[in-house]
Write a protein that binds this DNA or RNA. Structure first.
Lengths: 225, 225
DNA sequence: AGGCTATTTATACACTTGCACAACAACGCC
DNA sequence: GGCGTTGTTGTGCAAGTGTATAAATAGCCT
């Protein structure tokens, strides 16, 4: 069998073969390659050459799609945040479920794969570490955080309303902050030391902690089936 | 008035003046300069020249105290973790105080300055972002985390014992995980959006959430004076 | 005071980085 | 099928990187 994997052009100028991809496709590939590079080697290791190699193109092409490396990183971070919040909020969209069930589903979704994931955490930490120096990143985070917290606050209000309780705004805000902290904290623990917890354990801990925070009597109905 | 700040050697080879510092002092200065550089410009911006400039020396000196740049970063991270856990645990050392008071003091200490600090958070995030790729960092974090959680678990055990409750090991572990998450989550919120919270608000939220988690009746005794 | 030695500076070097630019070739269109 | 457009490659370059090493000098010891 002749060597199929390597055409071995003996003396030709041997320029690399390539395919023209759609613009959106290439941009996505480059962004994905950027996130992979950052996750694996950090921001310092995410060079245009590394990224291009991973995307299967040469370095020069990056400048054809992005004004500069900084812009690529910016868009990569935006894409990451978009995917995270999108997945997180998706769990809240359950129709015909009690507020309490939806809250439990939300917590469960946030404390299991694919949200609990070391790679995503590495990316989050790497980017957020520069929020102190980069106002653009700081505001991007702030907006994502407030959006997330508002979602939590809305569900909490529904849950308490279903229990015939009428919390004032301050009380509601405090609950949302605390619940947000519980989810974030457990998320970090799970990402950094996932194998220390049995499957579903973090979600169970989170739900119990949140029920305690809200003063809900633990009900059995969520355990059967 | 003759120019006092600049001796202005007219034609001398003009080699830079310097002072010999003690070894430990120099190492500490270099480590501090490293942390400052990382906090401000990230790992990518922490070059030997930047660090040396900030420490008031020239780049070559770094190699006189550290085998390589990587070692300097390693020691800087170790120093950071050491200071953080040291400060955190210090609040637990109150003698003649009820377990519950000590727990409250611990939470309060962790949710106020200087633990709540954007610079410290940037450093933590920047380094921890590489924990996925760097096993050394990962283990360093794991040990620090477990040490912290064990402290929490010990206080929780004392608090519950004072309430005449006898939790089993699993229950204790879950409480520690949840409380750890509450503290971590609120710590992040405070570091990233400190000005959104009034002074002491995060600590109050944390204490209330933890008391709920432990099933402690909110007592008034901690509010007066 | 004067020398010794280790600390510190300064320079050099090989290598990498982001970016610029010209040559090239894949693909749509006539 | 030939041709033009432009996505893509390859090369080059100046600036910056970590490290090696020689030269200089600050401060201690006698």
């Amino acid at each position: 069998m002749p060597d199929a994997a390597d055409p071995a052009p003996m003396n030709a100028p041997s320029r690399r073969k390539f395919r023209r991809e759609g613009e959106e496709r290439r941009r996505q590939d480059l962004i994905d390659a950027t996130l992979d590079s950052v996750a694996e080697h950090g921001l310092e290791g995410a060079t245009v050459r590394t990224i291009a190699l991973r995307a299967g193109v040469t370095a020069g092409l990056i400048r054809h799609y992005f004004p500069g490396k900084e812009d690529l990183l910016q868009e990569a971070y935006a894409a990451l945040m978009g995917r995270m919040t999108e997945q997180a909020k998706a769990a809240l969209l359950m129709e015909d479920a009690s507020p309490r069930q939806r809250l439990a589903a939300f917590v469960t979704a946030n404390l299991n794969a694919p949200i609990i994931d070391q790679r995503v955490f590495s990316l989050w930490a790497t980017f957020i570490g520069r929020a102190g120096a980069d106002p653009t990143l700081a505001r991007a985070h702030r907006e994502g955080y407030l959006g997330f917290r508002n979602e939590v606050e809305a569900v909490v209000a529904e849950v308490l309303a279903a229990e015939r309780r009428k919390p004032d705004a301050s009380e509601l805000r405090h609950h949302a902050i605390a619940i947000n902290a519980i989810i974030d904290g457990l998320w970090i623990e799970g990402c950094l030391a996932g194998e220390m917890f049995s499957p579903g354990e973090l979600a169970a801990i989170g739900i119990k902690a949140i029920e305690a925070e809200l003063g809900l009597a633990p009900e059995k109905q969520f355990q059967e089936k």
